[in-house]
Design a protein around this nucleic acid. Sequence first.
DNA 1: GGTAGTGTACTGGTTCACTGGTACACCACC
DNA 2: GGTGGTGTACCAGTGAACCAGTACACTACC
Lengths: 132, 132
Amino acid sequence: MRLRVSPDSAVPIYEQILSQVVFAVAAGDLPAGEAVPSVRELSQQLIVNANTVARAYQELERLGVVEARRGVGMFVTDGGPKVCRDRRKVLVRDRVRETVREAAAAGLSAEELRQLVDDEWPRRNGTAKTPH
Amino acid sequence: MRLRVSPDSAVPIYEQILSQVVFAVAAGDLPAGEAVPSVRELSQQLIVNANTVARAYQELERLGVVEARRGVGMFVTDGGPKVCRDRRKVLVRDRVRETVREAAAAGLSAEELRQLVDDEWPRRNGTAKTPH
DNA sequence: GGTAGTGTACTGGTTCACTGGTACACCACC
DNA sequence: GGTGGTGTACCAGTGAACCAGTACACTACC
């Protein structure tokens, strides 16, 4: 598992770590039962404070993706992969909901919104926001 | 023109004012040439600082929606209504773009995304996020 | 039991966005 | 020219988010 963070990004470092781990677990790159890198190991690799990594991990634990065993490490739970896949879907649904509301407020029709989505779909691997 | 702000909201007050004025201009409620409420008048009405209103107005001026005449007031420009209508469309398009990207990253197909949009469309006047 | 690994609690500093208070510069009108 | 309206510049306070330093508690292993 290879992580990257950009300290200059607008999104907080701990959130970058969080989403990347979620992505890795969802993709099966980090299967259930597997140990995630220790906070110190990852903090040295990314050159950030151990607490920053720990904060991301705590969020992962709150989501039920990993479980901590003090003195041992943190491990992906049995339900972790499913949680991560579901989480991404929830994020998408929430975003869709906001988009639909915004479009309706702007006076767009359902058909116009559909058209807009179809127009943007081919550009889904956009150039922006890539972790350079 | 009747504005409302909720100080407890996560979105800044000046931004609430901004978007509401944009909406009013786009809807024709505030036609070109019309004077917008003075910063002091609006600040008293909303019980916020005049600078907070001024900040929203400066943003409106930067967008080309209004123009300031020192000592007189601020007035909707000739192109104001069109700018506001366009701006809402741009906001929607940007949001659609992000949503599409998120959906693709989550592994959704184009068809699944379309389905999601159609599911959410009937809820476009949703209950959440209303200015209580 | 010592050691080296793990996660975690507490605390402090830094930065930034937002808001408000005050004072200033301008214009119309009497 | 005085008065009362306008927008605006400057500065200070506040609060939250983020991150790092340090010290602690725990576990496995020799």
